[in-house]
Design a protein around this nucleic acid. Structure first.
Lengths: 142, 142
DNA sequence: ATGAGTGCAAATAGTTTGCAAGCTG
DNA sequence: CAGCTTGCAAACTATTTGCACTCAT
């Protein structure tokens, strides 16, 4: 199926002066299908066989995040993860530190954080908010 | 001067069954004096000459965070940083992505995040929240 | 056709692990 | 004096960089 979500992202890509390539389209498709934020490695491994090099994934994810098509997150170990943030679907995640399972969290205080940032004279504000815990299944396994 | 803050942390250390060593005391002193969260590397370099190996810093920071003496944060590039979180002085930071300058942010929605976590059956909840931006000085320099 | 984008190789940064020796409680 | 801690060396994971070649616009 054709992802209208992906098409939207591709439009944003051109609008930002970036080029549309089959590699980028493939990455966006992977991220659009993903149930949770993916790291560069994970995105790469979900890509149809040999779509592109891992380095290209790193470079593209970084650019896509800069132009706001992707939203950046972190794992507890510092690994960067990305998910589509198309339109204004900004949200956060609750991640199990044992199995990686994630749940969507719709709480956010981005507005307030930006206020504080502006009050200090800062610009280009972004934020990262992540919740980590042990999910019921992993708790039992223990 | 003697840091009552450090003494408090050391007490928490023993209470948690960890041992008090000169290395750990030195690290806590560095963190108590720091104006902003420090990475393992930075903490190590602030230590009085040859206090201990960098590996020891990594191991100790990790343990101190687990028992709640330190609060974990991340830089935009994924580097882990730590600051004292003694008592209940939980707070967050606004960091300039160009020069690293940080400002304290007292906003936090830990309570609400924990609620959501519990509602999913998750336990041992923690969270990370970081604001990144460009500070006035770095903006001008550009 | 021109410069953004890509692949490949190699370098970095940050962090973890194994093991023997040292020090704390 | 038992076992937590540390030091040193080495392995690892995540990410970045340089350069020549390719492709989107």
């Amino acid at each position: 199926m054709t992802h209208s979500l992906v098409d939207q992202c591709l439009k944003d890509l051109s609008r930002a002066g970036l080029r549309i390539t089959k590699q980028r389209r493939a990455m966006l498709e992977v991220l659009a299908d993903a149930q949770n934020p993916l790291s560069a490695e994970e995105t790469h491994s979900e890509l149809p066989n040999a779509t592109c090099d891992l380095v290209t994934v790193y470079r593209s994810l970084d650019q896509l995040e800069r132009i706001g098509v992707l939203q950046l997150g972190v794992r507890e170990n510092g690994t960067k993860v990305y998910c589509l943030s198309h339109g204004h679907d900004h949200h956060h995640h609750l991640t199990c530190r044992a199995c990686g399972r994630t749940e969507r969290v719709d709480l956010c205080m981005g507005e307030e954080l930006n206020q504080v940032g502006y009050s200090f004279g800062f610009t280009d504000l972004t934020h990262v908010m992540e919740v980590f815990g042990t999910c019921p299944d992993c708790k039992d396994k223990n």
